[in-house]
C-alpha cells in the first residue's frame, strides 16, 4: 500500500485555489477552538439566508452576551470572530459557499489531526498492489507507517453516500490484505444523529468505518488506541 498525490484536473485546480484561501484556514482555526454551540452557529451562518451579524447574535444569545457562556470576555471575543469569519464565507455567494464549506471541513479535520501527527496530507490517493486505483482522492490522510488513516470529509450528513462508504471500506479491506491496519473514517460537520439517520438507510458496508460528527470533532486530535 502506498499514498500518492491526486492527479490535478481543471476542477481540482479551481478547488485548490479555494483550499489555499487564507479565509479557509482562519475559519478552521476558529472552529478548532470552538464550543459545540459555536460550531452550530458557524454551520447555521454559513448555511444561512441572511448576512446581518445582529440577526445571528439574536439567534444565539447564549454566545453573544445574554447567557452564562458569554459571561467571560474570552468566549464573547471568540464567538464574534467566528461569526465574522462565517459571514465572510456566506458573503462569497451561493456558488462559492459550498466549495468553501467543504474546504473548511477538510482544513478543520487536518488541523485537529496535526495536533497528534506530523504526517497529515491532503488530496491523496491510496494505491494497492494488483488493485485498480480509485479515481477520487481522500480529503485528508495521516501517512503513518504504523497506523495510516484516511478521511473523507463532508459538510452535511446528506453528503454520505454508498460510493463514499464503499471506497472507504474497500481501502480498509485491501490494506488488511497487505496486513496493514488502515483506519478509515467519514467526517461530517453535522449532527451525529443526522448522520446515523443517513447511514441507517444505506446497505453499503461500513462496520469498519468510523464516523466523526460535529459533536465529536475534538476526538480527531486525540491519539488513536
Amino acid at each position: 500500500m502506498r499514498f500518492q498525490d491526486a492527479a490535478r484536473d481543471a476542477r481540482t485546480v479551481v478547488y485548490a485555489g479555494i483550499q489555499a484561501d487564507p479565509l479557509v484556514a482562519r475559519v478552521a482555526g476558529l472552529l478548532v477552538a470552538a464550543t459545540p454551540a459555536e460550531r452550530w452557529m458557524a454551520r447555521a451562518v454559513m448555511n444561512g439566508e441572511r448576512t446581518e451579524p445582529e440577526i445571528w447574535r439574536r439567534i444565539f444569545p447564549s454566545l453573544f452576551g445574554e447567557g452564562p457562556a458569554a459571561a467571560a470576555a474570552e468566549f464573547l471575543g471568540h464567538a464574534e470572530k467566528l461569526l465574522a469569519a462565517s459571514l465572510e464565507v456566506a458573503n462569497r455567494g451561493e456558488q462559492a459557499r459550498s466549495s468553501y464549506r467543504g474546504a473548511i471541513v477538510e482544513e478543520l479535520t487536518a488541523q485537529l489531526l496535526a495536533r497528534r501527527s506530523g504526517t497529515v496530507k491532503r488530496e491523496r490517493r491510496v494505491l494497492f498492489d494488483g488493485v485498480p486505483a480509485e479515481i477520487h482522492p481522500y480529503d485528508v490522510t495521516v501517512e503513518s507507517a504504523a497506523k495510516p488513516e484516511v478521511y473523507d470529509c463532508k459538510w452535511g450528513a446528506r453528503g454520505i453516500n454508498a460510493d463514499v462508504l464503499n471506497q472507504l471500506d474497500d481501502a480498509r479491506t485491501h490494506a488488511a490484505d497487505e496486513e496493514i491496519e488502515l483506519d478509515v473514517a467519514i467526517v461530517v460537520f453535522d449532527a451525529r444523529r443526522s448522520a446515523d439517520i443517513r447511514l441507517d438507510r444505506s446497505t453499503a458496508r461500513r462496520d469498519g468505518t468510523r464516523l466523526v460528527a460535529l459533536e465529536t470533532f475534538d476526538e480527531l486530535a486525540k491519539a488513536r488506541p
Binding site: 464549506r101 463532508k154 459538510w155 446528506r158 453528503g159 453516500n161 463514499v164
Partner: peptide, 8 residues
C-alpha cells in the same frame, strides 16, 4: 446516491 456522488 446517484445525485449525491461525492457531494461536499
Amino acid at each position: 446516491f446517484k445525485l449525491l456522488r461525492f457531494h461536499r
